[in-house]
Amino acid sequence: MIIRRIIVVGGLAALVVAAGASTARADDLSEYLEDAGNAIYSGQRLVGTTWDGIERIGMIEVQHHGGFESVDAGSVNAMVGAGRMYMDGLDDAAISFVLRSTPNLGARYTVENGEATRHLGRPATVLDVVEAGKLRIRMVVDDSTSAPVATQVFDAEGEVFRYSSMVDFSVWVDPSMAQTDGREYRMMLPLDHVDLPATLAGYQLIDAYAGPDDGRQAFYTDGLFSFSVFTTERRANWAEIADNELPYTTGGRDYLRVVTPTSVWVLWNAPAMAVALVGDLPPDHLDHVLAELPHPGTENWLKRLWRKLFG
């Protein structure tokens, strides 16, 4: 099955808000993120990723209000927030039971105040998120609304690999936007246990869910970026399932990769399982995470048969 759509996942988990005076002493990343969730704005957002010469750009119409963001990317409309996702054109949306993760994971990053600037003629503040002495994200936050109006995410070499910029900005929002009453959604069933590491290269396993089909989903975050690892005990023909996948080799191992303007997919078959990783993590983080997950490979057919028959 060739799908015609690629869902691009929530890019920069980082776009944060600055509340002028309070930013001077606030160094808690999650507090910035919390504030950003309350911002009210709308506009057009240009997003893009450049990764190993692959370039993906997208333009999205966004409305941000009441902790939800509604997104119009031409052929699809979606509304996301508070553990729920509603997407036109799909039968289901999903809901997570977990309303927020408890660990404070912002310790990996520090936030530094930058200078005053302007974006689209509006007063704004530059904020830098620094990881181990290196700039990881530079963001521009609109002073009056706390909306993140521009961001750049840097890779290990200090190059911008992902960016996002409001090219049109307004404090107007459609108040009917956040109406989700009456819309059906699909439950995600939480799992007590999943056979994956509790931490992966600095990312923490927060929780896990059953599905889709007989698969499992494990959700990891470091407080800023996040990804999910999907596993299923059947091997998958990813080339058929995915669209626009390209070979990707890291650490001497071969994967398939799909780069989108705001996220990355990595797909492979490990012995006894198919694995898909999707998230917004930077290239160097991705490579470290992949090194700690089951590696690509095939299983001896006799072992496979034995496992299938006898568990």
Binding site: L15, L90, S96, V98, S228
Partner: peptide
Amino acid sequence: SRHVARASAEPGF
């Protein structure tokens, strides 16, 4: 969609 739904429960998502 499952990843997005889950990730959207995180602060600031």
